[in-house]
Design a protein around this nucleic acid. Sequence first.
DNA 1: CTTGCACTTCCAGTTACTGGAAGCTTTATA
DNA 2: TATAAAGCTTCCAGTAACTGGAAGTGCAAG
Lengths: 132, 132
Amino acid sequence: MNIGTASEKSGLPAKTIRYYEDIGLLRPDRADNGYRDYSMSDVHRLRFLQRSRSLGFSVEECRQLLSLYGDKERESADVKALAETKLTEIDRKLAELTELRNTLRHLVHNCHGDSRPDCPIIDGLSGRAQTQ
Amino acid sequence: MNIGTASEKSGLPAKTIRYYEDIGLLRPDRADNGYRDYSMSDVHRLRFLQRSRSLGFSVEECRQLLSLYGDKERESADVKALAETKLTEIDRKLAELTELRNTLRHLVHNCHGDSRPDCPIIDGLSGRAQTQ
DNA sequence: CTTGCACTTCCAGTTACTGGAAGCTTTATA
DNA sequence: TATAAAGCTTCCAGTAACTGGAAGTGCAAG
């Protein structure tokens, strides 16, 4: 499929898809007319990149995560260690997102726009306050 | 407190904290010697910025979220609409993170590094596959 | 009193895109 | 079949969000 279709299916702009190719994150085929030709597997990689980037992982972290798949030379222990490191990060992100959601929920339900100067919303937004 | 302490408490590099001041995200006091002087409220803002940036929100989105607090001119409906938009985004991010975690968990527990060529991990990593 | 570390500003470099020009290919319409 | 529009190509420049380093000042400890 052409880059436009891959863009639609992955949620990434065509520009970004070409950029990801430039930095070696995928290598689509080329058709006879010179157009890039994306497989479903390419689209899966792109969707994964779209997601993990939007969740705050760096491009290099995404590269590592992608290497968990399809890299036949990697040792099992190696793969597991990397995946477990990322799992810990993901769990932290989940906890932080949950807290952020709770705070915003509170804001929506309890604040009425009167902006009392003592509204402690910022404390919630910033997570458990460090008093020391 | 000085920028070094604010950096420790917020988890942001001093460089980044100065940058956030440059782009108008906070306005710490200045001591007589010219040093920036951060309050606990500043640190809360910084911690919030650290979190929401690492969770994939842009600086401009963070600016909006920060404006939910302390902007006494905003209308209640306005604040609620913004918060609710962000809540929807956060819920989507939560779902995506949860899926990503499940996929990595599966990888850690079920893949043994033998890299079967039909290992469907990439499908999981990329979310529900779009077959059409 | 001087060594060293933290702070200041300023400017240059990096990461990860993003926009636009110039040109070729394909597709839709007259 | 002509031709216009849309989609693709490369290349180069610009932006966002930092990040590193130089050059200089403040301050606390030995």
